[in-house]
Protein backbone atom coordinates (compact mmCIF):
# COMPACT_ATOMS: atom_id res chain seq x y z
CA UNK A 1 0.00 0.00 0.00
CA UNK A 2 2.84 2.32 0.86
CA UNK A 3 4.58 1.35 -2.34
CA UNK A 4 1.58 2.35 -4.44
CA UNK A 5 1.94 5.97 -3.40
CA UNK A 6 5.58 5.90 -4.26
CA UNK A 7 4.99 4.26 -7.59
CA UNK A 8 2.42 6.82 -8.69
CA UNK A 9 4.80 9.57 -7.78
CA UNK A 10 7.57 7.92 -9.72
CA UNK A 11 5.42 7.54 -12.81
CA UNK A 12 4.65 11.25 -12.64
CA UNK A 13 8.33 11.96 -12.55
CA UNK A 14 8.79 9.76 -15.55
CA UNK A 15 6.13 11.69 -17.40
CA UNK A 16 7.78 15.04 -16.84
CA UNK A 17 10.50 15.04 -19.50
CA UNK A 18 8.73 13.93 -22.69
CA UNK A 19 10.57 13.53 -25.95
CA UNK A 20 9.03 16.66 -27.40
CA UNK A 21 8.81 20.04 -25.78
CA UNK A 22 5.30 20.21 -24.37
CA UNK A 23 3.05 23.14 -25.20
CA UNK A 24 2.65 25.88 -22.66
CA UNK A 25 -0.07 25.06 -20.16
CA UNK A 26 -2.25 28.06 -20.87
CA UNK A 27 -5.08 26.04 -22.39
CA UNK A 28 -4.88 27.95 -25.67
CA UNK A 29 -2.92 25.29 -27.47
CA UNK A 30 -4.65 22.09 -28.57
CA UNK A 31 -1.73 20.56 -30.36
CA UNK A 32 -1.22 17.92 -27.63
CA UNK A 33 -4.71 16.97 -26.57
CA UNK A 34 -3.74 13.83 -24.70
CA UNK A 35 -0.56 13.52 -22.68
CA UNK A 36 -0.80 9.78 -22.01
CA UNK A 37 0.18 9.06 -25.63
CA UNK A 38 3.64 10.35 -24.94
CA UNK A 39 4.08 8.21 -21.84
CA UNK A 40 2.98 5.08 -23.62
CA UNK A 41 5.89 5.58 -26.01
CA UNK A 42 8.39 6.13 -23.24
CA UNK A 43 7.27 2.88 -21.54
CA UNK A 44 9.06 0.10 -23.31
CA UNK A 45 6.09 -2.09 -24.05
CA UNK A 46 7.77 -4.18 -26.74
CA UNK A 47 10.30 -5.77 -24.40
CA UNK A 48 9.53 -9.46 -23.88
CA UNK A 49 7.88 -10.08 -20.57
CA UNK A 50 9.92 -11.58 -17.75
CA UNK A 51 13.28 -10.38 -18.94
CA UNK A 52 13.14 -6.96 -17.40
CA UNK A 53 11.51 -6.14 -14.13
CA UNK A 54 10.49 -2.69 -13.05
CA UNK A 55 11.34 -1.83 -9.47
CA UNK A 56 8.23 -0.52 -7.72
CA UNK A 57 10.30 1.82 -5.60
CA UNK A 58 12.83 3.45 -7.96
CA UNK A 59 11.06 2.55 -11.23
CA UNK A 60 14.39 1.42 -12.60
CA UNK A 61 14.45 -1.48 -15.02
CA UNK A 62 16.41 -4.46 -13.80
CA UNK A 63 17.50 -7.41 -15.90
CA UNK A 64 15.83 -10.33 -14.15
CA UNK A 65 18.93 -12.48 -14.01
CA UNK A 66 20.75 -9.65 -12.32
CA UNK A 67 17.88 -9.38 -9.86
CA UNK A 68 18.04 -13.12 -9.12
CA UNK A 69 21.80 -12.96 -8.64
CA UNK A 70 21.27 -10.14 -6.19
CA UNK A 71 18.75 -12.21 -4.12
CA UNK A 72 15.85 -10.17 -5.51
CA UNK A 73 17.19 -6.94 -4.09
CA UNK A 74 17.08 -3.97 -6.45
CA UNK A 75 20.72 -3.06 -7.26
CA UNK A 76 19.77 0.61 -7.59
CA UNK A 77 17.65 1.32 -4.52
CA UNK A 78 17.93 -1.91 -2.43
CA UNK A 79 14.18 -2.51 -2.62
CA UNK A 80 13.60 -6.06 -1.34
CA UNK A 81 11.36 -8.04 -3.71
CA UNK A 82 9.65 -11.13 -2.31
CA UNK A 83 11.98 -14.12 -2.34
CA UNK A 84 10.85 -17.72 -2.77
CA UNK A 85 11.50 -20.22 0.02
CA UNK A 86 13.93 -22.36 -1.95
CA UNK A 87 15.95 -19.41 -3.24
CA UNK A 88 16.18 -18.07 0.27
CA UNK A 89 17.32 -21.37 1.72
CA UNK A 90 19.93 -21.58 -1.02
CA UNK A 91 21.14 -18.12 -0.03
CA UNK A 92 21.41 -18.99 3.66
CA UNK A 93 22.84 -22.50 3.98
CA UNK A 94 26.14 -24.03 2.91
CA UNK A 95 25.98 -25.79 -0.43
CA UNK A 96 24.46 -29.27 -0.31
CA UNK A 97 24.04 -29.15 3.47
CA UNK A 98 20.25 -28.79 3.60
CA UNK A 99 18.22 -31.91 4.36
CA UNK A 100 14.54 -31.22 3.89
CA UNK A 101 12.01 -32.61 6.38
CA UNK A 102 8.50 -33.69 5.32
CA UNK A 103 8.87 -32.57 1.69
CA UNK A 104 5.73 -34.40 0.60
CA UNK A 105 3.19 -33.24 3.17
CA UNK A 106 0.10 -31.73 1.54
CA UNK A 107 -2.99 -29.85 2.70
CA UNK A 108 -6.43 -31.41 2.60
CA UNK A 109 -9.77 -29.67 2.32
CA UNK A 110 -11.07 -30.87 5.67
CA UNK A 111 -14.01 -28.44 5.85
CA UNK A 112 -15.02 -28.98 2.20
CA UNK A 113 -14.77 -25.23 1.98
CA UNK A 114 -16.58 -23.57 -0.88
CA UNK A 115 -16.50 -19.84 -1.38
CA UNK A 116 -16.04 -18.04 -4.67
CA UNK A 117 -13.89 -21.04 -5.57
CA UNK A 118 -13.30 -24.19 -3.57
CA UNK A 119 -10.20 -24.75 -1.44
CA UNK A 120 -9.59 -28.03 -3.24
CA UNK A 121 -9.34 -26.31 -6.64
CA UNK A 122 -7.22 -23.51 -5.17
CA UNK A 123 -4.73 -26.06 -3.82
CA UNK A 124 -4.61 -27.88 -7.15
CA UNK A 125 -3.96 -24.73 -9.13
CA UNK A 126 -1.19 -23.59 -6.77
CA UNK A 127 0.51 -26.98 -6.85
CA UNK A 128 0.38 -26.92 -10.63
CA UNK A 129 1.69 -23.37 -10.78
CA UNK A 130 4.48 -24.10 -8.29
CA UNK A 131 5.73 -27.64 -8.69
CA UNK A 132 8.63 -26.90 -6.34
CA UNK A 133 6.30 -26.20 -3.43
CA UNK A 134 3.75 -28.44 -1.73
CA UNK A 135 2.60 -25.72 0.64
CA UNK A 136 3.65 -22.39 2.11
CA UNK A 137 6.68 -23.53 4.10
CA UNK A 138 9.88 -25.49 3.49
CA UNK A 139 11.61 -26.97 6.53
CA UNK A 140 14.82 -28.85 7.14
CA UNK A 141 18.21 -28.97 8.79
CA UNK A 142 21.26 -27.35 7.27
CA UNK A 143 24.56 -25.69 7.98
CA UNK A 144 24.70 -21.93 8.32
CA UNK A 145 28.42 -21.23 8.56
CA UNK A 146 29.60 -23.85 11.02
CA UNK A 147 26.28 -24.07 12.85
CA UNK A 148 23.87 -26.88 12.19
CA UNK A 149 20.49 -25.19 12.33
CA UNK A 150 16.84 -26.20 12.05
CA UNK A 151 15.55 -23.89 9.37
CA UNK A 152 11.98 -23.13 8.30
CA UNK A 153 11.29 -20.70 5.47
CA UNK A 154 7.83 -19.57 4.44
CA UNK A 155 6.86 -18.73 0.88
CA UNK A 156 4.35 -15.95 0.33
CA UNK A 157 3.64 -17.01 -3.23
CA UNK A 158 1.77 -20.11 -2.05
CA UNK A 159 -1.70 -18.91 -1.00
CA UNK A 160 -0.30 -15.76 0.57
CA UNK A 161 1.95 -17.79 2.84
CA UNK A 162 -1.10 -18.61 4.91
CA UNK A 163 -0.78 -21.02 7.83
CA UNK A 164 -2.99 -24.05 7.70
CA UNK A 165 -2.44 -27.53 9.11
CA UNK A 166 0.56 -28.29 6.90
CA UNK A 167 2.46 -25.12 7.76
CA UNK A 168 1.69 -25.63 11.45
CA UNK A 169 2.59 -29.31 11.43
CA UNK A 170 5.81 -28.90 9.45
CA UNK A 171 7.00 -26.07 11.67
CA UNK A 172 6.04 -27.97 14.83
CA UNK A 173 7.96 -31.03 13.67
CA UNK A 174 10.89 -28.78 12.81
CA UNK A 175 10.84 -27.21 16.27
CA UNK A 176 10.56 -30.64 17.90
CA UNK A 177 13.47 -31.88 15.78
CA UNK A 178 15.50 -28.90 16.95
CA UNK A 179 14.56 -29.59 20.57
CA UNK A 180 15.41 -33.30 20.30
CA UNK A 181 18.68 -32.79 18.47
CA UNK A 182 19.72 -29.72 20.44
CA UNK A 183 19.77 -27.41 17.42
CA UNK A 184 19.25 -23.66 17.18
CA UNK A 185 16.17 -22.68 15.24
CA UNK A 186 15.70 -20.08 12.51
CA UNK A 187 12.27 -19.39 11.04
CA UNK A 188 11.86 -16.91 8.19
CA UNK A 189 8.23 -15.76 8.09
CA UNK A 190 6.25 -14.34 5.23
CA UNK A 191 2.55 -14.73 5.62
CA UNK A 192 -0.81 -13.04 5.50
CA UNK A 193 -1.91 -15.02 8.56
CA UNK A 194 -3.99 -18.09 9.32
CA UNK A 195 -5.56 -19.94 6.38
CA UNK A 196 -9.31 -19.31 6.44
CA UNK A 197 -10.07 -22.37 4.34
CA UNK A 198 -9.14 -24.67 7.22
CA UNK A 199 -11.17 -22.74 9.78
CA UNK A 200 -10.35 -23.41 13.42
CA UNK A 201 -7.70 -25.97 12.52
CA UNK A 202 -5.64 -23.05 11.21
CA UNK A 203 -6.11 -21.05 14.40
CA UNK A 204 -4.95 -24.00 16.47
CA UNK A 205 -1.62 -24.09 14.59
CA UNK A 206 -0.79 -20.88 16.45
CA UNK A 207 -1.05 -22.65 19.80
CA UNK A 208 0.67 -25.75 18.46
CA UNK A 209 3.77 -23.96 17.16
CA UNK A 210 4.06 -21.74 20.24
CA UNK A 211 3.70 -24.76 22.51
CA UNK A 212 6.56 -26.51 20.72
CA UNK A 213 8.65 -23.35 21.07
CA UNK A 214 8.09 -23.38 24.83
CA UNK A 215 9.87 -26.75 25.04
CA UNK A 216 12.62 -25.60 22.67
CA UNK A 217 13.26 -22.58 24.90
CA UNK A 218 13.32 -24.78 28.00
CA UNK A 219 16.37 -26.57 26.62
CA UNK A 220 18.13 -23.23 26.40
CA UNK A 221 18.25 -23.40 22.64
CA UNK A 222 18.15 -20.16 20.68
CA UNK A 223 15.38 -19.26 18.27
CA UNK A 224 15.89 -16.49 15.74
CA UNK A 225 12.75 -15.22 14.03
CA UNK A 226 13.23 -13.38 10.74
CA UNK A 227 10.31 -11.26 9.53
CA UNK A 228 10.04 -10.55 5.83
CA UNK A 229 7.48 -8.68 3.76
CA UNK A 230 4.73 -9.23 4.77
CA UNK A 231 4.31 -10.94 8.15
CA UNK A 232 0.92 -10.33 9.69
CA UNK A 233 -2.02 -11.64 11.70
CA UNK A 234 -2.00 -15.26 12.86
CA UNK A 235 1.67 -15.86 12.06
CA UNK A 236 2.74 -12.60 13.68
CA UNK A 237 0.57 -13.41 16.72
CA UNK A 238 2.28 -16.76 17.19
CA UNK A 239 5.74 -18.17 16.45
CA UNK A 240 7.06 -15.12 14.56
CA UNK A 241 6.80 -12.87 17.64
CA UNK A 242 8.50 -15.01 20.26
CA UNK A 243 12.05 -15.29 18.93
CA UNK A 244 14.98 -14.81 21.28
CA UNK A 245 16.10 -12.52 18.50
CA UNK A 246 13.65 -10.94 16.09
CA UNK A 247 15.12 -9.57 12.87
CA UNK A 248 13.34 -7.93 9.98
CA UNK A 249 14.17 -7.12 6.38
CA UNK A 250 14.13 -3.41 5.50
CA UNK A 251 10.70 -1.91 4.76
CA UNK A 252 8.90 -5.22 5.44
CA UNK A 253 5.23 -4.83 6.33
CA UNK A 254 4.76 -6.34 9.79
CA UNK A 255 1.72 -6.19 12.00
CA UNK A 256 -1.23 -7.87 13.66
CA UNK A 257 -4.28 -6.34 11.97
CA UNK A 258 -4.32 -5.26 8.34
CA UNK A 259 -3.76 -1.59 7.66
CA UNK A 260 -7.25 -1.20 6.18
CA UNK A 261 -8.83 -2.84 9.22
CA UNK A 262 -6.99 -0.49 11.56
CA UNK A 263 -8.00 2.47 9.42
CA UNK A 264 -11.63 1.39 9.41
CA UNK A 265 -11.71 0.68 13.16
CA UNK A 266 -9.96 3.82 14.33
CA UNK A 267 -11.33 6.14 11.63
CA UNK A 268 -8.04 7.98 11.63
CA UNK A 269 -5.12 8.72 9.37
CA UNK A 270 -2.25 6.33 9.95
CA UNK A 271 1.41 7.35 9.86
CA UNK A 272 2.94 6.48 6.46
CA UNK A 273 5.51 4.13 8.03
CA UNK A 274 2.83 2.37 10.11
CA UNK A 275 3.59 -1.36 10.49
CA UNK A 276 6.91 -1.23 8.63
CA UNK A 277 10.06 -2.84 9.98
CA UNK A 278 11.37 0.66 10.72
CA UNK A 279 8.20 1.51 12.69
CA UNK A 280 8.62 -1.63 14.78
CA UNK A 281 12.29 -0.98 15.42
CA UNK A 282 11.64 2.60 16.43
CA UNK A 283 9.09 1.39 18.98
CA UNK A 284 11.42 -1.23 20.38
CA UNK A 285 9.59 -4.29 19.13
CA UNK A 286 12.38 -5.94 17.12
CA UNK A 287 16.12 -6.38 17.64
CA UNK A 288 17.47 -5.25 14.30
CA UNK A 289 16.78 -4.59 10.65
CA UNK A 290 19.03 -6.75 8.52
CA UNK A 291 19.33 -6.33 4.73
CA UNK A 292 18.90 -9.59 2.85
CA UNK A 293 22.41 -9.54 1.42
CA UNK A 294 23.87 -9.43 4.94
CA UNK A 295 21.43 -11.90 6.50
CA UNK A 296 23.60 -15.00 6.36
CA UNK A 297 26.68 -13.35 7.85
CA UNK A 298 24.63 -11.70 10.59
CA UNK A 299 22.94 -15.00 11.48
CA UNK A 300 26.33 -16.70 11.73
CA UNK A 301 27.58 -13.92 13.95
CA UNK A 302 24.53 -14.05 16.25
CA UNK A 303 24.74 -17.84 16.47
CA UNK A 304 28.40 -17.56 17.51
CA UNK A 305 27.32 -15.49 20.49
CA UNK A 306 24.25 -17.53 21.35
CA UNK A 307 25.98 -20.89 21.17
CA UNK A 308 29.45 -19.93 22.52
CA UNK A 309 28.87 -20.34 26.24
CA UNK A 310 25.50 -22.02 26.18
CA UNK A 311 24.75 -24.37 29.07
CA UNK A 312 22.45 -27.15 27.95
CA UNK A 313 19.48 -27.83 30.18
Amino acid sequence: MATRGIRRKQIDVEQVPPAVTPPTRDGASNSFPSRPKLTSKTKKRDIPEGLWIKCPRCSGLIYDKELDDNLKVCPNCTHHFKLGARERIHSMVETCSFEEIDPLMESVDILKFTGSSSYESKLLSYRKKMPMLKDAVVTGVGLIGTHRVALGVMDFSFLGGSMGSVVGEKLTRLIETATDRGLPLVIVSSSGGARMYEGMFSLMQMAKTCGALAYHARRNLPYISVLTDPTTAGVMASFASVGDLILAEPCAMIGFAGRRVVEATTQSELPPDFQTAEFLKQRGLIDAIVPRLEMKQRLISYLHYLMANRVAS
Binding site: M206, G211, M236, S241, F256, V262, P271, F274, Q275
Partner: peptide, 18 residues
Protein backbone atom coordinates in the same frame (compact mmCIF):
# COMPACT_ATOMS: atom_id res chain seq x y z
CA UNK B 1 -6.96 -3.54 15.85
CA UNK B 2 -5.71 -0.05 16.65
CA UNK B 3 -2.56 2.06 16.39
CA UNK B 4 -1.79 1.87 20.11
CA UNK B 5 -2.34 -1.89 20.12
CA UNK B 6 0.16 -2.27 17.28
CA UNK B 7 2.65 0.09 18.89
CA UNK B 8 2.60 -1.88 22.12
CA UNK B 9 2.77 -5.14 20.19
CA UNK B 10 -0.53 -6.94 20.49
CA UNK B 11 0.80 -9.79 18.35
CA UNK B 12 3.62 -10.44 20.80
CA UNK B 13 1.29 -10.23 23.81
CA UNK B 14 -0.93 -12.95 22.32
CA UNK B 15 1.97 -15.09 21.12
CA UNK B 16 3.65 -15.05 24.54
CA UNK B 17 0.39 -16.15 26.16
CA UNK B 18 0.10 -19.06 23.71
Amino acid sequence: PGVGAEERHIAEAIAVNL
